[in-house]
Amino acid sequence: MWKHFLLLLFFVFISCNEKKYLRIEEEKESGSMVSMRDFSRVSYSKEGDLEWKLMGEESYIYPTENKTIVYGFEFYQYENGKYKSYLTGNRGEIDHSSKSVTLEGDVKLRTEEGRTLQSELLNYNLDEKTLSTDSEVVIYSDGTTIRGKGLRADKGLNKYTIIKPSAITVGGTNPLKEK
């Protein structure tokens, strides 16, 4: 009986030596308590409506600093369960204490109305629901493109101020008209 068991064990070890393991690249951030890959987080209202969805390629959580860093940042916002906007960036840092998000690298915002914003750096205040940056920005709205440096806006780009506008290309209707 033992001979059969040892023979079986021998064949199991021989057939298992060809395993290939997926190599995980080095982490982009150090010192985090928790790191995750290919994650998503979803929030619902008390009524059960979808409020927002956050997805990322990599996430690093720092509980003692009360912050989270997300690479491949994708953030969808909803109101009453309906899509409102989509915000992306190469790297996002969420400060849970100040309830703010700082996005860096190829930052893009697209609203349900079709307005878009592009920048290399963008700050989003979650309490005030405002956007700001001192970097170069491009806003496209209803056929009009506005370029400049610095921005103060609401999250839906319904009201915005470009601090130092540098170029305006007009097409479609006037995006600055009163609604």
Rank of each mutant, 00 (worst) to 15 (best):
D154Q: 03
Y71H: 13
T64F: 07
Y60I: 06
Y140K: 12
I163G: 01
K84E: 11
K108F: 08
A167E: 08
Y21G: 03
L122E: 03
K99R: 10
L151T: 01
G92V: 02
H96E: 15
K179S: 03
P175N: 02
Y140H: 13
S119Y: 11
I163T: 07
F10A: 07
Y83K: 07
D95Q: 05
V12T: 03
S166R: 11
S132D: 12
V70R: 12
L54F: 07
K155W: 11
E51C: 13
S85N: 14
V138G: 01
T64Q: 06
N90Q: 11
Y44A: 03
M55W: 12
E178R: 08
L22W: 00
K67C: 05
G72C: 09
I61L: 11
T88A: 04
S15A: 07
P165N: 04
E65H: 01
V12W: 06
R41N: 03
S43W: 14
M36S: 11
G72R: 10
D95F: 06
Y60C: 08
D106K: 09
D38S: 15
T161G: 00
F11G: 00
Y83A: 12
Y78N: 05
N158C: 03
L109P: 05
N174E: 04
E65M: 04
I162W: 07
S30G: 08
S30T: 14
I163H: 04
S43Q: 13
Y160D: 04
S166G: 00
F5P: 00
S32L: 01
E26F: 06
E120D: 10
Y60S: 12
L54G: 13
G172Y: 11
L157I: 04
E136Y: 14
G89N: 07
R41P: 02
I24M: 08
S135G: 02
S141V: 06
V138W: 02
N158K: 15
Y71K: 11
L87I: 04
